[in-house]
Design a protein around this nucleic acid. Structure first.
Length: 129
DNA sequence: CTCTTGACCACTC
DNA sequence: AGAGTGGCCAAGA
């Protein structure tokens, strides 16, 4: 947390940089939610901030950040229909299954920022075609 | 400083 | 299951 003497501009820049840093850590073929990204970036409850940060995002895997649509489901939440289509394409290109309604199963594709080895997960179907 | 906006989220019907 | 509501945080006008 910034002390009262901390430069406010530096602080806000740090927030966005933190968000981008988190997004860059999301591995290919996995997805995270805005809320998850925000929390990892040090902004608990700041899901909307993460969304705002994604809007102007460039040179980072922004397509891997989705809205939370249920306990174990995420979905394309982007407003612009064109951008939504692009996101779907990018995700499918890296092996993420997106339903017709734009939903993704977090149990299968959700990113778990594990520091240690994750338990052996056995995909029920071939991860790669 | 107040008010509005937003690629959010959880809770209720 | 889908729609409505209120709350959340930070940015920008």
């Amino acid at each position: 947390m910034p002390s009262s003497g901390d430069d406010l501009v530096a602080h806000t820049q740090r927030l966005y940089r933190a968000i981008y840093a988190v997004v860059r850590r999301i591995p290919r073929g996995k997805v995270a939610t805005y809320g998850q990204v925000a929390e990892l970036a040090g902004i608990p409850g700041g899901a909307r901030v993460a969304g705002a940060a994604m809007r102007g995002a460039s040179d980072l895997p922004w397509q891997r950040v989705l809205g939370k649509r249920g306990p174990s489901r995420a979905g394309i939440q982007i407003h612009d229909p064109v951008g939504a289509a692009v996101q779907r394409k990018l995700l499918e290109d890296e092996g993420v299954e997106v339903s017709d309604r734009g939903l993704i199963d977090l149990n299968r594709f959700g990113w778990i920022p594990t520091t240690r080895a994750r338990p052996p997960r056995r995909p029920r179907r071939s991860p790669i075609s």
